[in-house]
Amino acid sequence: MKICIFGAGAIGGFMGAKLAQAGADVSLVARGPHLAAMQENGLTLLQEGQDPLTVPVTASESADALGPQDYVIVTLKAHSVPAVVDKMQPLIGEHTTVVSGVNGVPWWYFHKLGGPFEGTRLASVDPGNVQWDGFGPDRVLGCVVYPAAEVVQPGTIKHIEGNRFSLGEPDGSKSERALALSHALAAAGLRAPVRPRIRDEIWVKLWGNLSFNPISALTHATLDVLCTDPGTRAVARGMMVEAQQIAEKLGVKFPIDVDRRIDGGAAVGAHRTSMWQDLDMGRPMEIDALVCAVQELGALTQTPTPTLDTVSALVQLRGRVAGLYG
């Protein structure tokens, strides 16, 4: 089984290091100093309570050098994917599965969902249908990424918490390809359950991302603060209620209620969300997949989203002023 991780930064690097340690045939596509360090010294993984682990890895900037794969696991930010679909084509053979380990509403959301919106394309996450046409939705295996990690220096990944990568077919089946990848990840010490309702998990994670991320980018409040301050908690709750109304119209079942989800965010502690970190570090902000896509789904399902619309307008302007969006 040949596995390529495309966008091997923090999360992709963590997964890649674990797979390489387990002896899997894994390659990493990365760039810049991080790539150079991996090529020269291997990939180092720092985990609490364990000695640093350094493993030799096959790493490249170009997919041409790697050839067709059984699985291509995409761990880029959502807005980065359309621009590299063409560059990924050398990895894709007749039977390649593209694993979408990307935050937010996935571009393939309406593939094999059934109902009145079957096959609907989402312009906010796949402008021009680049991914739909370039990958083809039949190749896709969904993935909800739970670990937290960071690149502490080129070639070195610090694992912070979590080891679960939930997998799911768009049609809910327990396919051979999903089970085979699940077994490979489990052999590397990662949890990879195959879920029959992967969209439910997508929404539970998105629930926090669509609200906590933009609010933190606007206020510079950590999760424990924004989830307990009465004003920002109310704003987050309003956004999440609107999102829940949309999701339930699309058949999603939420296993917890809004307030428990917000309390879970508060329990994380003084965490700076990824959108706030991107703003501080001058990186493009992941607004479209986390916020605008939910607005697009609101329009599609004829669900009013006044709180989402307000916060979205503010964070989009914040991003444009910083030169990091639009």
Rank of each mutant, 00 (worst) to 15 (best):
N163M: 06
G104I: 10
R31Q: 08
C292V: 12
V291D: 08
A247M: 08
G326M: 01
G32W: 04
G115H: 02
A221S: 15
V102Y: 03
Y146G: 04
I198A: 13
F14R: 03
A221K: 15
H34Y: 04
V140C: 14
V152H: 13
A217T: 10
Q244I: 08
Q316D: 00
V294H: 03
V151P: 05
L317F: 00
G142E: 03
T54Y: 01
D64M: 03
R177S: 15
Y71V: 05
P170G: 04
R139E: 09
M285C: 05
Q39E: 06
G208W: 09
L210M: 15
M240Y: 02
V26M: 02
V140G: 06
E169Q: 13
D138V: 06
V85T: 11
A243I: 09
V26S: 02
T228P: 06
A267L: 14
A10V: 07
L300Y: 01
T307A: 07
D86G: 11
R261D: 03
G162D: 06
L181H: 05
D64W: 00
T273C: 14
A236V: 10
I202K: 01
A180D: 08
R197V: 01
C143L: 15
L167R: 11
D257P: 07
A123G: 03
V152M: 12
A322H: 09
A17Q: 07
Y146P: 01
S100N: 15
K174R: 13
V235D: 02
N103A: 12
G136H: 09
L91D: 00
G238Y: 08
G319K: 08
H95T: 15
P106L: 05
D126G: 10
D171Q: 09
D224Q: 12
L218N: 13
M275I: 12
T228L: 12
H183F: 01
G172M: 04
S166E: 14
G128D: 09
A63D: 01
L324G: 11
S100R: 01
I3S: 05
F110G: 12
S80F: 00
E169L: 09
G323Y: 04
H183W: 00
F254L: 14
F110S: 12
L122E: 08
I11H: 07
S166M: 12
T97S: 13
F6G: 04
V57F: 00
I202D: 02
W107A: 02
T54A: 01
V99N: 06
E94L: 10
A188Q: 07
G134N: 10
A299R: 13
T54V: 03
T96M: 09
M240N: 08
T156P: 05
L190F: 09
L324T: 12
R164I: 11
P193Y: 03
Q131V: 00
P52Q: 06
S27D: 01
P304G: 09
